[in-house]
Amino acid sequence: MTYYLVRFLSRLVCLLPGRLCDALGRMLALCLWPFLPAKRKKLAREQVAMCLGTDAKESERIAKESAVRFGPMLFEVLRFPVIVRRMADYVEIEGAEHLRTMLEKGKGAVIATAHTGNWELMGGALSQAGFPIIGVAMRQHDAAMDRFINEYRCLVGMHITYKDDVREMFRMMKKGWIVGLLADQDTNRRDGVVLDFFGQPTNCVPGPAAMARSAGIGVIPGYITRKKDGTHKIILHAPIDVPRTKDKRSDIRTAGQAVNRILEQHIREHPEEWFWLHDRWKSMHE
């Protein structure tokens, strides 16, 4: 039942103008903001202040905007059936040449991205621009929502695989596909690598650097940001080389640290668009 209700809601939203959907999404998120747990909001404010050195008022503003943006983002996903028809007008891509050059090597590519901007839209925009994108998904607890979001990811052109199917990722990379990995959330201490992030020891996922190292290619940091006119811009950076020495762990740390530096800079430029509500340093405190 949930699946059909969300599909029905999507049909209704697709009948509305984009700007109205943005306004409705923001209004919905603003209404829900007071109901977010105080502990979670406090965490977001503290992380903003620690990373950006902002005062209490600015930290509160950034934390709130970071949460409120999920309203318009949700409505954009619901509007995928409309957006996909004019994706090139809706999303600008900067640095596409880095991706094309990488694909010419015949080994596929790895994009390290983050929970910043509308990352769901990013994969679809690259797919519609002609890039074969593998979206790596986390299985949702609600089967109906898992079905819905993956159908809409496929609608905009992505191939979806779950994050535990690493063999499929490598198999498709050999055929020239691009793996997009979200690489900015906390993981367990056993699997993660500790790197510097905003001056703090931070547990990071090794996936992007590890996959690129195995394939003998570099990692392309890439992020999406929302422009003032409501459209979006994807920024793809030059590939980060991954060393291939006898010390695999050290190689991964070297490349991962370089990716972190680029992500840091992106967050400083677009602080309201990162997911500050996530406890980025949880495993470091356990």
Rank of each mutant, 00 (worst) to 15 (best):
N118W: 03
A112Y: 05
F148T: 06
M122S: 14
D89P: 01
V91T: 09
S10T: 01
I133N: 04
F131N: 02
V77N: 07
I149P: 02
E94A: 14
I133K: 00
A29Y: 11
A49T: 06
A114Q: 04
L126P: 01
V82C: 15
P132H: 04
R85V: 11
P37G: 13
V110H: 06
G25A: 12
D142L: 12
E76R: 03
R11P: 00
L20S: 02
E104C: 05
K41I: 09
L9G: 11
L12Y: 06
I133W: 03
K57S: 15
K105G: 14
C14Q: 05
T116F: 13
E94L: 13
F35A: 15
Y90H: 13
R86M: 11
F35G: 07
F148P: 01
R7I: 12
V6D: 04
E60R: 14
Q128G: 00
G106D: 01
E65S: 13
P34I: 08
M138F: 14
E92A: 11
A112Q: 07
R69V: 10
N118F: 03
V77P: 02
A67G: 10
I83R: 05
M138T: 13
K39Y: 14
M145Y: 14
A125E: 06
L43F: 11
F35N: 04
R40P: 01
F8G: 08
P37N: 12
L16G: 04
L74H: 08
A44Q: 13
C21Y: 11
E104R: 14
V136W: 10
E65H: 13
V68S: 14
K105Q: 11
V77H: 05
G108P: 00
T113M: 03
S10E: 03
L9W: 11
G108Q: 02
G53C: 10
G25I: 11
R7P: 00
R61C: 08
V82F: 03
L16Y: 05
T54V: 05
K107W: 01
R45I: 02
A23I: 10
H98W: 09
G53R: 12
G135T: 02
P132M: 04
P72A: 03
S127M: 02
A143N: 07
T113E: 02
R45Y: 07
V68I: 15
R79N: 08
E104V: 05
C14V: 04
A88D: 14
K107E: 02
K41N: 08
G123R: 01
E60W: 10
T113L: 06
E151P: 00
H115V: 01
R86F: 13
D146N: 10
M122N: 14
A23F: 13
G25W: 09
V6E: 05
D142T: 10
V48E: 04
G108L: 01
L15H: 08
R100D: 10
L103C: 01
S10Y: 10
Y4M: 06
G53L: 12
K105L: 06
V82H: 08
G71Y: 09
W119Y: 15
